[in-house]
Simulated assay, not measured.
Amino acid sequence: MVGVLIISHGDLGQSLADCARHVLGRVPDNLAILGVEKHDNPDVRLQEAQALVAGLDDGSGVLVLSDMLGGTPCNIAGRLVRGGQVELVAGVNLPMLVRALSYSAQALDVVVSKAITGGLEGVYYMIPEDK
């Protein structure tokens, strides 16, 4: 099963994980969270992220989700990428996470694709109805 690691600012990843557990009605055992604070040493957090990836990877690979392209969490996550084994998608949102977890029994490339489409399709501009 593909592991999923969220690396985010502060408690965002934990909040997303809590919401995903609520939506899915289960606690995913292939999910880990690493919150990064302003005062954290990125090299230390990278070592922690590497340990989490190692713990999640059963040979199926790991999808790392980060919150914002260019931010410290994403920069840390980018240092984990190993094509075909550890992949990274930035811009995590709840639909992306739920989709990744729902398809995590599939191959890593499928999980990446499902996560991206879930994230994109989960953003929708609601046009107000005329009254």
Score class of each variant (00 low, 15 high):
115 A>I: 12
86 V>H: 09
59 G>D: 00
17 A>S: 15
35 G>W: 10
87 E>C: 10
105 A>R: 13
75 N>T: 06
81 V>L: 13
88 L>Y: 11
53 V>H: 06
53 V>D: 03
109 D>S: 15
120 L>R: 15
105 A>W: 12
22 H>C: 10
42 P>V: 01
58 D>Y: 00
17 A>F: 11
85 Q>A: 12
59 G>E: 01
40 D>V: 02
53 V>Y: 02
51 A>R: 09
72 T>N: 02
46 L>Q: 07
95 P>Q: 04
51 A>H: 03
1 M>K: 11
41 N>G: 03
118 G>P: 02
98 V>G: 09
120 L>V: 15
110 V>L: 07
30 N>F: 04
48 E>N: 05
98 V>R: 11
73 P>L: 00
53 V>F: 04
55 G>V: 03
10 G>D: 03
38 K>C: 04
59 G>C: 00
73 P>C: 07
41 N>Q: 09
2 V>I: 15
66 S>T: 08
92 V>N: 05
98 V>Y: 12
109 D>V: 11
2 V>M: 10
64 V>N: 10
107 A>P: 09
43 D>P: 03
37 E>M: 11
126 M>W: 14
108 L>P: 11
105 A>H: 15
79 R>L: 13
18 D>V: 05
78 G>M: 12
31 L>M: 06
36 V>Y: 05
41 N>V: 10
112 V>S: 02
115 A>K: 11
85 Q>F: 05
29 D>A: 14
40 D>W: 11
130 D>S: 03
38 K>E: 12
71 G>M: 00
15 S>T: 13
126 M>G: 09
1 M>W: 11
40 D>Y: 02
77 A>F: 11
47 Q>P: 04
49 A>V: 01
112 V>Q: 10
45 R>C: 13
102 S>M: 04
35 G>I: 11
18 D>I: 08
32 A>N: 05
63 L>M: 01
49 A>C: 03
129 E>K: 08
111 V>H: 10
68 M>R: 05
52 L>Y: 01
101 L>R: 12
2 V>K: 13
36 V>D: 07
105 A>L: 08
104 S>R: 15
92 V>Q: 12
102 S>V: 00
20 A>H: 13
52 L>E: 03
66 S>W: 00
47 Q>K: 14
86 V>A: 14
20 A>Y: 14
76 I>G: 04
99 R>P: 00
6 I>S: 15
12 L>D: 01
129 E>C: 09
58 D>L: 01
66 S>D: 03
38 K>G: 05
81 V>E: 09
103 Y>A: 15
63 L>I: 06
13 G>P: 07
31 L>R: 13
120 L>T: 08
127 I>Y: 09
128 P>C: 11
106 Q>H: 08
108 L>T: 07
73 P>W: 04
22 H>W: 09
67 D>F: 07
52 L>M: 09
118 G>V: 06
31 L>N: 13
105 A>M: 07
127 I>P: 10
27 V>S: 13
113 S>G: 06
27 V>N: 09
7 I>S: 01
49 A>K: 02
44 V>Y: 01
111 V>W: 05
31 L>H: 13
114 K>V: 06
115 A>D: 13
30 N>H: 12
36 V>L: 06
120 L>D: 02
114 K>F: 03
66 S>Q: 06
77 A>Q: 03
107 A>G: 03
60 S>N: 04
33 I>F: 08
20 A>I: 04
70 G>K: 02
103 Y>D: 09
90 A>Q: 12
15 S>Q: 14
